[in-house]
C-alpha cells in the first residue's frame, strides 16, 4: 500500500511525489534529463502560483508556486516551444493546467464525492495564496532546471 494513513485517508508526501513524478515524466521531463530535484528549501517568495480547490467531504487546495523562470519553462515544455516564444497568457494557462492535473489525481485519493474546482493562477512577484484556517498536509519543494518549484496540499476544516 502507498503511504495513506488509515485514519485520515489523506495523501502523504509519497503519494504527492508519485503524482508529481508522473506529470514530470509526461510533460516536463519526458527524456528524464530535467527532474524536479527536491531540496526541502522553501524560497522566500515566488513569482507565480497556481491553485485549485477541492470541495465536498474533504475540503482543501492544491498549490503550485514557482519562479517566473520555472513557470515559463513549464509552459515551454508543455507547448513544445522555446521559453522566449511563450506569452504571459501561455504561462498562466500552463500553470493552471499543471495544478489541475495534480489536483485531479490528489482528489482520487480523497473520500468519494469530492469535486474539483477550476484552477486559479496569479502571476505577480511575491504573491502567495493563503487560506486562513487551512493547514498544510504535504509539501514538495525543490529545484527544476535551477528554478524553485513548491507543490503543496492544504486541508481546510469546515463545519457542517
Amino acid at each position: 500500500m502507498s503511504g495513506i494513513a488509515d485514519s485520515t485517508l489523506e495523501p502523504s508526501d509519497i503519494d504527492l511525489k508519485e503524482i508529481v513524478d508522473q506529470v514530470w515524466e509526461s510533460y516536463l521531463d519526458p527524456d528524464g534529463t530535467a527532474p524536479l530535484v527536491l531540496t526541502g528549501t522553501v524560497p522566500e517568495k515566488f513569482d507565480a502560483t497556481g491553485s485549485i480547490s477541492i470541495t465536498g467531504p474533504w475540503h482543501g487546495h492544491v498549490v503550485v508556486a514557482t519562479s517566473l523562470g520555472a513557470a515559463t519553462g513549464a509552459a515551454a515544455a508543455f507547448l513544445a516551444m522555446e521559453p522566449d516564444e511563450v506569452s504571459e497568457e501561455d504561462v498562466a494557462d500552463a500553470l493552471g493546467e499543471l495544478v489541475n492535473i495534480i489536483g485531479g489525481n490528489v482528489k482520487s485519493m480523497l473520500p468519494p464525492g469530492c469535486l474539483l474546482a477550476l484552477p486559479h493562477v496569479v502571476v505577480a512577484t511575491g504573491a502567495v495564496s493563503r487560506w486562513p484556517g487551512a493547514t498544510r498536509i504535504c509539501e514538495l519543494c525543490g529545484q527544476w532546471r535551477g528554478e524553485p518549484v513548491c507543490i503543496s496540499l492544504w486541508h481546510e476544516k469546515r463545519e457542517g
Partner: peptide, 12 residues
C-alpha cells in the same frame, strides 16, 4: 478543453 495548453498538446 478549457486549457489551451492541453488543447495544443492533444492537437500535436
Amino acid at each position: 478543453d478549457d486549457s489551451r495548453t492541453m488543447r495544443r498538446i492533444v492537437r500535436r
